[in-house]
Design a protein around this nucleic acid. Structure first.
Lengths: 250, 250
DNA sequence: ACCTGAACACCGTTCAAGT
DNA sequence: ACCTGAACACCGTTCAAGT
C-alpha cells in the first residue's frame, strides 16, 4: 500500500532529505536511525510547535510505534538534547577583533537569538539544559577568545558565557510561548502581540496612582518597544556590565 | 467514613491551615475554594516538585475529582498564575536610598531568587508567565523608585525590570531542574551538584587543545564557584550595565 | 451554583515477544 | 540487533447529570 516515498542521500558532508508534500506518514521500510528521529523532531517542532513533539507523534511521523524509538534514544530528553546539539552547530563565532570586541560579543548574542527564532520551538527544549554539544563548546571557545581580545578577565569571561546563554534562552522561551499562544488563540489572523502590550498598559494605567505613582505615569515607557528593542537593550546592558565588573573578578 | 480532619481559621490577616500528618486525603466535606486549591498546589509543589502538581493530584489532595476544580479555576495555567501571584506578594522592596541605589537593586534581585528557592518548584510555574499580580506590580514600583534615586533614565529603568525578572527566573528554573534531578536520581544522599561540575570540567579538559585552547586551559575557571557566586556575578553585571547604558536610553 | 462520574484524546516508558 | 503490540500509569479538559 505504501511505497518508499522518502528519498535521502549523502552528498559530501551534507545529509539531504527530501519529503514531498503529502508524504507525511513516510515510507515504513526506511530504517530508523537517530538522525531520522532528530530530523522528524525538528520538522514537527517547526511546523506545529514544541508541544506537538511527543514520542508518539514522532513515531507516527516515522511510520512506526513509540516503542521503536527506544532502540535508538534513551528518552524524550535525549531527543531534545540532540535537537539542541544540531542547532547549536549552526552558530559561528567570528575571529576576535580587539577594536570591536564589544560589538562582536553583542552580535554573538543576537545570532544566538536568531538561531532559536529560525527553529521555532527549540527554545522550549533548551529549558534547564546544559549545552554540551560540540557546537556549544565551539561557541564558548569563540566567546572566550573575543573576551580575551577585549581584555576581560578569565573568570568574568567564563561566567559571562553562562550568563549570556541564560539570558538569551530566557528571552527565546518567552517569545516561543507567545508565538504558541498566538497560533492557538487567534487563528493566524495577525501576529501582533501589541494587543497584549496594550492590555498590560491599560492595566498599569488603571492602578491607584497614590500607591503606584511610577507604574501608572510610566505605563507607556514600560510597554514601549518590540522584542528586538528590548533584546538590544539587554545585550547592551550585559556587555557594558561585563566591561565594568571584569576587574573585580580577576 | 471520613470526618472533618482539616482545620482552618482566620487569625487577623493570617490564613492558618493545619493538616495533621496522615490526613493527606483531607476532609471531603470542606468546601472547595480557589484559596484551598492554591494552598494545595503550593504544598504539593514544595513537597514533591512541580511535575507532581497536576489537576488530578491536586484534586486527590483535596479529596475530590479533577472535574470539580474547574468550577473555581479555568485551567492549570490559571493555578500556576495564582501560585505565582501569591508568592510574588511576599517580596518587599525597600524605600529608595540614593546613596545605595545600586546595592538596593542588587538586593532586590537576590531577594527574588531567595523567594523562588523558598518555594521549590515555583520557578517552573513562572516560565513564560508575565507577572501581573499585585505583588509583582508593587515590586516594579519599588524597583522604578530605586532606579529613579540612582538617576537612571525612565526607559532604561522600565526595561531593566523586565531584564532582571527574566534573568532571575532563568537562574531559578535552572536550579529547580537540578534539584528535581538530584531528588529523583540520587536518593537523598548528598545534594552537591559539584559532581556534575566535575564531569563538565573533565569533558572540557578532554577536548583537543588545538581546537579549544581556551576552553581546555580554563576548564577550572569555567566550572568555578557555586550557584551563589555565579548569581552574584550576574547581578553585578546587570546593575553595572544598567548604570553604563542608562544615558543611551534617555 | 457547585460538584460529580465518566469519557475523550492524549502522554512517556517498559517489556515480553517476534524477526 | 532491531522492531513491535500491548500494557502501565499517567495527563488536561469537557459535559451531561446530579444536588
Amino acid at each position: 500500500m505504501v511505497e518508499k516515498r522518502e528519498k535521502s542521500w549523502q552528498a559530501g558532508p551534507l545529509r539531504i532529505r527530501v519529503t514531498l508534500p503529502g508524504d507525511e506518514p513516510a515510507g515504513p521500510k526506511e530504517r530508523l536511525t537517530v538522525d531520522r528521529i532528530v530530523d522528524a523532531a525538528m520538522s514537527l517542532m517547526a511546523e506545529k510547535g514544541y508541544d506537538a513533539v511527543s514520542m508518539r507523534s514522532l513515531a507516527k511521523e516515522l511510520g512506526t510505534g513509540p516503542a521503536s524509538l527506544y532502540a535508538h534514544v534513551a528518552s524524550k530528553e535525549e531527543v531534545d538534547q540532540l535537537v539542541l546539539d544540531r542547532i547549536g552547530a549552526e552558530l559561528h563565532v567570528p575571529a576576535p577583533d580587539a577594536d570591536h570586541w564589544d560589538e562582536q560579543l553583542r552580535q554573538v548574542l543576537r545570532d544566538m537569538l536568531a538561531l532559536y527564532r529560525r527553529h521555532p520551538g527549540s527554545a522550549r527544549a533548551a529549558i534547564g539544559m546544559i549545552p554540551t554539544g560540540m557546537g556549544a563548546l565551539r561557541t564558548m571557545e569563540g566567546m572566550l577568545a573575543i573576551c580575551d581580545a577585549g581584555g576581560i578577565s578569565p573568570q568574568a569571561s567564563a561566567w559571562f558565557c553562562d550568563l549570556a546563554a541564560a539570558y538569551v534562552s530566557a528571552i527565546a522561551v518567552e517569545e516561543a510561548i507567545w508565538v504558541q499562544r498566538d497560533n492557538t488563540t487567534a487563528s493566524g489572523d495577525d501576529p501582533d502581540h501589541t494587543a497584549l502590550d496594550e492590555q498590560l498598559r491599560a492595566l498599569m494605567e488603571s492602578l491607584p496612582a497614590a500607591e503606584f505613582p511610577l507604574v501608572t505615569s510610566r505605563a507607556g515607557v514600560m510597554t514601549a518597544g518590540d522584542g528586538d528593542d528590548r533584546f538590544e537593550f539587554g545585550v547592551a546592558v550585559l556587555v557594558a556590565g561585563l566591561a565594568a565588573v571584569s576587574e573585580k573578578y580577576r
